[in-house]
Amino acid sequence: MKNTAIEIAPNSALLVIDVQKGFDDAAFWGPRNNPAAEANIAALMDAWHAADRPVVLVQHASARPGSVLAPDHGGYAFKDFVEERRQESLLITKTVNSAFYGTPDLAEWLGARGIGQLVVAGIQTNMCVETTARMAGNLGYEVLLPLDATHTFDLSGPEGVSLTADQLATATAVNLQGGGFAHVVTTAQLLDASGSRDAAQ
Rank of each mutant, 00 (worst) to 15 (best):
I6S: 06
P10L: 09
N11K: 14
S12E: 15
I17A: 02
K21H: 13
A26K: 13
A27T: 01
G30L: 00
P31A: 07
R32Y: 05
N34A: 09
A37D: 06
L44V: 09
D46V: 08
A47W: 03
A51T: 06
A51S: 11
A51L: 02
Q59Y: 05
Q59D: 08
H60R: 02
G66K: 08
V68N: 04
L69Q: 01
A70P: 04
G74D: 11
F78C: 00
D80I: 02
R85A: 08
S89T: 13
N97A: 15
S98N: 07
A99T: 06
P104N: 11
A107N: 10
W109V: 07
L110I: 07
G111P: 02
A112S: 14
R113T: 00
I115K: 04
G116T: 12
I123A: 05
N126H: 15
N126T: 14
R134C: 10
N138T: 10
G140F: 09
L144D: 06
T150D: 11
H151M: 12
T152I: 04
S156M: 05
G160F: 04
V161S: 02
S162H: 12
A165E: 02
L168W: 00
L168A: 07
A171M: 13
N175C: 15
V185N: 07
A188E: 15
L190E: 07
G195C: 04
G195S: 05
R197V: 02
